[in-house]
Design a binder for these strands. Structure first.
Length: 342
DNA sequence: AAGAAGCTCAACCGCGAGAGA
DNA sequence: TTCTCTCGCGGTTGAGCTTCT
């Protein structure tokens, strides 16, 4: 015996809700509450499935919902929680008053995922792409590493090209192109430039893999030395990342949840402009966005003091960190949610 | 100016958990 | 203990809108 449908499909209206339907549902719920969703459409005079009514109410009609843009703080919360609990949207939404799981999920899928990818961070694991590559590369013989880079390029090329060609920045200088009318033009990447871009991506990826695979955690970015903190992705922190396309007028900064920065801390998600060469310069040299300044190491050392003590209290001292914020003390989450998951 | 491509978000679908008979 | 039913969740879809070519 199969599962019975939640309602008869025949007399049930589907698709967009009309204002009249919204009114009927809202006024019925205002009077009777949301006790039995199966009965609500019948009693409210709606030709809708109960499930559809519930969805409309919870995602749109509820009076306590926010409908505007997500704020930086909300985005930051989403990213941090996502790194801990994964795609458990209802859990994440519960931390954001007025937001629904659907809102959060849509925002993640349409905006945040791309932002993180654009910063060279894998939105699934919250690790820099090059760390992932490096982890794989450590299991390979050197000749295979080059093939890995090639394969990785196959995966990321389209997205990278997309970002580069649509970012409205010159992919190589990192500066917005100035045109006559509005001051900011669009980088047009010709066929040759595209090929050149691909070559740079290849080169950069190969270098990143080689260097990390060799345990060399310093990379050179346009003459500036960057330090990768740790070797297991525990510090997938980007500092001074600015991308005018991805973040609008704001610097978009990714602070790894593993650090447990307070939400209100000024550093996180705050405006942090940087020079073009540092941020959006040649992708090859940028190591696919893996940019962690040495100051991070200092922060980590300092953190060993008071804050580390705080972690001990939470019984999380000694966790290896990894990609998940096992030592994050920000969120009052149940223990089962704090365990690493992919 | 028009068609194509990309993007957003409301809505749908199927499944699993949990309550209650 | 088993079965039925409801609810809630996460993944997916597609209409409508915007941007690009």
């Amino acid at each position: 015996m199969g599962r019975i449908p939640c309602c008869e499909k025949d007399n049930v209206k589907r698709g967009q809700w009309t204002p009249e339907e919204d009114n009927k549902l809202s006024s019925y719920i205002a009077q009777h509450g949301t006790r039995n969703w199966r009965l609500i459409p019948k009693n409210a005079g709606l030709q809708r499935c109960g499930k559809s009514c519930r969805l409309r109410w919870t995602n749109y009609l509820r009076p306590d919902l926010k409908h505007g843009e997500f704020t930086d703080a909300e985005e930051q919360t989403i990213v941090k929680l996502h790194s801990v609990v994964g795609n458990r949207w209802s859990l994440i939404a519960a931390q954001l008053p007025g937001r629904t799981d659907n809102d959060v999920k849509n925002h993640w899928n349409t905006k945040l995922k791309k932002k993180l990818s654009g910063m060279g961070i894998d939105p699934v694991t919250h690790k820099p792409f090059s760390h992932l590559m490096a982890e794989i590369a450590t299991t390979l013989a050197p000749p295979q590493v080059a093939h890995l880079a090639e394969a990785a390029l196959g995966c990321f090329k389209d997205e990278m090209l997309h970002l580069l060609t649509k970012k409205r920045v010159d992919p190589f200088s990192g500066m917005p192109q100035v045109t006559g009318n509005n001051g900011v033009g669009y980088a047009s990447v010709s066929g040759n430039d595209k090929e050149e871009t691909i070559e740079k991506i290849k080169l950069g990826l190969s270098r990143a893999i080689m260097q990390e695979g060799n345990g060399d955690h310093h990379v050179v970015n346009n003459g500036k030395s960057w330090a990768l903190v740790g070797s297991h992705g525990e510090a997938s922190v980007m500092h001074d990342v600015y991308d005018p396309m991805l973040s609008g007028d704001h610097g978009f900064r990714y602070d790894a949840p593993a650090y447990g920065n307070d939400v209100g801390e000024a550093s996180a998600w705050s405006q942090s402009l940087c020079t073009g060469s540092t941020c959006t310069g040649g992708v090859g040299e940028q190591q696919a966005g893996v940019i962690v300044e040495k100051e991070v190491e200092v922060e980590m050392e300092e953190e060993d003091g008071e804050e580390a003590e705080g972690r001990k209290i939470n019984g999380r001292k000694g966790d290896e960190g990894g990609m998940f914020a096992s030592d994050c003390v920000l969120w009052d989450l149940p223990d089962d949610l704090m365990s690493p998951m992919v």
